[in-house]
């Protein structure tokens, strides 16, 4: 993992709350409340601007990495069709010896600059094992 990425803004772009995406999310949830839930969780910040927008600059090896946590702070529901400003920033990377923990902050703001939602995503990347170390 690239420890120099701390503080770096990896994404600063506009995203649209696409009704087709909302429908797919509701299908993935498959419950009576799914449509309401989809309006609260339509984006996953680390992939919202493309699958490599965060993984590559973080230097994260997906063969050794998993998501360890996710938090949401909701200010309001997204509105279908609205355009949102998304910024994704590397908030912290901690070296825990056998692993790295990276916290990525995704902020979603409406056209007036008001915060709609904050997400924090924690990635856990196991350190690469030296060849032969495990026999």
């Amino acid at each position: 993992m690239n420890l120099n990425a701390i503080g770096t803004v990896l994404v600063d772009t506009e995203v649209v709350v696409d009704p087709a995406r909302l429908a797919l999310l509701a299908k993935a949830l498959g419950t009576d409340s799914a449509a309401e839930t989809a309006l609260r969780v339509p984006f996953f910040g680390p992939t919202a601007a493309g699958k490599d927008s965060v993984v590559k600059p973080l230097g994260m090896d997906l063969r050794r990495a998993l998501q360890g946590g996710q938090s949401y702070e909701w200010h309001r529901a997204f509105v279908p069709g609205e355009t949102i400003r998304l910024t994704v920033r590397v908030e912290d990377i901690i070296d825990k010896g056998s692993m790295h923990l990276a916290t990525v902050l995704s902020e979603y703001r409406d056209s007036g600059g008001k915060l709609v939602q904050c997400q924090r995503t924690v990635f856990v990347e196991r350190r690469e094992t030296a060849q032969g170390e495990n026999g």
Binding site: A28, L29, S33, V41, Q67, Y72
Partner: peptide, 25 residues
């Protein structure tokens, strides 16, 4: 992971409605 999280969010929304949930970790 975000789908697992969304399922948890959905089960809470089914109980309380989205406007009653302020944050989740």
């Amino acid at each position: 992971g975000p789908l697992t999280t969304a399922i948890i969010v959905d089960r809470l929304i089914a109980q309380f409605g989205a406007d009653n949930i302020l944050n989740l970790d």
